[in-house]
């Protein structure tokens, strides 16, 4: 296995606040990596930097042996880096099928886009099947439930055939049924993709994760297997400490 993504000595400063502080982070080809950490730890910011939404103050991001410095967002997507957002964004005026088709068509030359869509390309067919959204294909994405939107977003990603998928809290706000389905979806995608998943939920983590990186206050706290991470006293402090504080806060208010 070779490293698909290598982040070296990465820092980003927002108005004097170090949101990411000297992070080294490597993901191998074919890996399913979970990225966890309390609110404000810098998880989303790390993904923002990898995908070009935020510029790092120092450090490098190397994807498949090539530096991403100076590459714009859509150029990174063309290299094979796809992401979802913490709050899902699908195109509500387009149907599920059109959303997927748009995602799948991004490598077509522009003049080809001037033709109308005829039929369904294989990648879209595959994405509909994987996400189980086939029955909703001709419905506008605006009518989808929260869970279905997340699946559509994931479907749009896989329809693009990316080499690295970055999923920002895909199960946040989902019912336990939806979580289970998303977990299965994740497992099946991870079979033939490299995936980084940001997730808070310890239960979800216990079920579906193997390798975990814990981020805390912009730094990597620990990296290892789920069991190692869960057993680590610092992680317990970060998470349980929070939980205790929140419980105390709840009790007061």
């Amino acid at each position: 296995m070779t490293a698909l993504l290598e982040v070296r000595d990465l820092s980003v400063v927002f108005d004097g606040f170090r949101a990411i502080d000297g992070v080294d982070f490597t993901v191998q080809n074919g890996e399913l990596r979970f990225l966890i950490g309390p609110n404000g730890a810098g998880k989303t910011t790390l993904i923002d930097i990898i995908t070009g939404l935020t510029k790092p103050t120092t450090g490098t991001v190397v994807f498949d042996g090539k530096s991403l410095a100076g590459k714009r967002e859509h150029e990174r997507v063309r290299l094979g880096i796809g992401r979802t957002f913490q709050t899902s964004v699908v195109f509500e005026e387009l149907t599920v099928l059109e959303n997927l088709d748009l995602a799948a068509s991004f490598r077509r030359p522009l003049w080809q886009l001037l033709a109308r869509r005829k039929g369904v390309v294989a990648a879209v067919e595959q994405a509909l099947e994987t996400t189980g959204l086939g029955d909703l294909a001709t419905r506008k994405a605006g009518v989808l439930s929260h869970g279905q939107r997340q699946w559509l977003e994931i479907g749009m990603l896989i329809a693009q055939g990316p080499r690295l998928l970055l999923l920002d809290e895909p199960v946040a706000g989902m019912s336990s049924d939806e979580r289970a389905r998303t977990g299965e979806l994740l497992t099946s995608i991870a079979k033939d993709h490299t995936v980084i998943v940001i997730e808070h939920d310890m239960e979800f983590l216990r079920r579906y994760a193997s390798q975990v990186t814990v981020l805390h206050e912009g730094k990597v706290l620990i990296e290892g297997s789920v069991d190692e991470v869960r057993a680590d006293p610092r992680v317990q402090e970060v998470y349980l400490g929070r939980a205790r504080e929140e419980a105390a806060h709840d009790a007061v208010s």
Binding site: T51, R72, E73, H74, V77, R78, G82, R83, F85, V89, F91, E92, E93, L94, E98, D101, L102, A103, F106, R107, L113, R117, M156, Q160
Partner: peptide, 19 residues
């Protein structure tokens, strides 16, 4: 379709690989 997508979510379109 792409134009509508740009209208409703320009930033999202970027992350679909379009400019």
């Amino acid at each position: 379709r792409l134009l509508l997508a740009v209208r409703d979510g320009e930033d999202r379109v970027r992350f679909l690989g379009y400019n």
